[in-house]
Computed example of a mutant assay.
Amino acid sequence: MKLTGNTVFITGGTSGIGRALAESLHKRGNKVIVAGRRKALLDEIAQANPGIDTVELDVGDRTQIERVAKQLIEQHPALNVVINNAGIMPFDDAGGALDDAQAIRLVNTNLLGPVRVSAAFVEHLKKQPESYIINNSSVLAYVPLAATALYSATKAAIHSYTMSQRFALRDTSVRVLEIAPPWVDTDLVHKSGDPRAMPLDAFVAETIQRLETATTEVVVEMAQPLRNNAGPNEHAFVEQFNQALAENPIPVA
């Protein structure tokens, strides 16, 4: 995709990967609109980046999505890129009791959120000469982390949905891309400087570079072994991956 001259809407853009992508695209000459739940953080990003617009949005709320989409289409008729980045990553126990309220919030945010956001904008995007839906999944779509079993499952679902969405829109002006990050050092879980995590600036720089020529997926080099593991022999690697993290867990505080 061309990396300048777009009008970009990004969800979950007040911190971590979302904010870094928003700021990078803003610096490249795109009109960027950032959505997030926390007004204080929206105000902070707008003040730090004159020209970025912001809007309050909880992607777990269908009514809010519909209202915000209508508002932004009216305010920004050239809007041609939607980045579904918002997500949450709570720990859970697939071998124990279910926190039902947490599970519902997770599925509403990570799975139904991107589906609903895409649906709210897609007819508008079809009217643009060149437009994009970009879904942020995770390498955990391919190598699930047992400690975040339902999160991993929602990302696997987003990968699957993205492939169907790409096919469904094949005869339109809308291209569908997927970004599958590795463990990036952000506050999604706990920003810790862990050497196993990819630095945020390095991740965004490589992702932006790969976006320019991407036709399906954007997978940074560090993430490719996990992306390529899926298949009939994947089980041993998944077992080894989870055993290694069980012995040396991701810091959470």
Rank of each mutant, 00 (worst) to 15 (best):
M1N: 03
L3G: 14
F9M: 14
I10S: 03
G12H: 08
I17Y: 03
L21H: 11
L21M: 14
E23A: 13
S24H: 11
L25P: 02
H26F: 07
N30H: 03
I33V: 13
A35N: 05
G36T: 07
R37G: 02
R37P: 01
R38A: 03
R38N: 14
K39R: 14
K39S: 12
L42I: 02
I45C: 11
I45S: 10
Q47E: 13
N49F: 02
N49S: 10
P50A: 11
R62A: 09
A69R: 06
E74W: 00
Q75A: 15
P77M: 02
A78F: 05
N80K: 05
V82A: 10
N84G: 09
N85D: 14
N85E: 09
G87E: 06
I88F: 02
I88W: 01
D92G: 05
G96R: 03
G96Q: 12
A97Q: 03
A97T: 01
A101M: 05
A103R: 00
A103Q: 06
I104Q: 06
V107S: 00
L111K: 04
G113T: 09
V115A: 02
V122F: 02
K127G: 07
P129L: 07
E130M: 08
N135E: 08
S137E: 11
S137W: 09
T148W: 00
A149W: 07
K155T: 14
I158V: 15
I158S: 08
F167S: 06
D171V: 01
V174Y: 03
V176D: 02
I179C: 05
A180G: 11
P182I: 09
T186G: 06
R196G: 15
F203D: 14
V204P: 08
R210D: 10
E212T: 09
T216C: 05
E217Q: 13
E221N: 12
M222Y: 06
A223H: 10
Q224R: 15
R227F: 15
A230W: 02
F237E: 10
E239M: 13
F241H: 13
P249R: 06
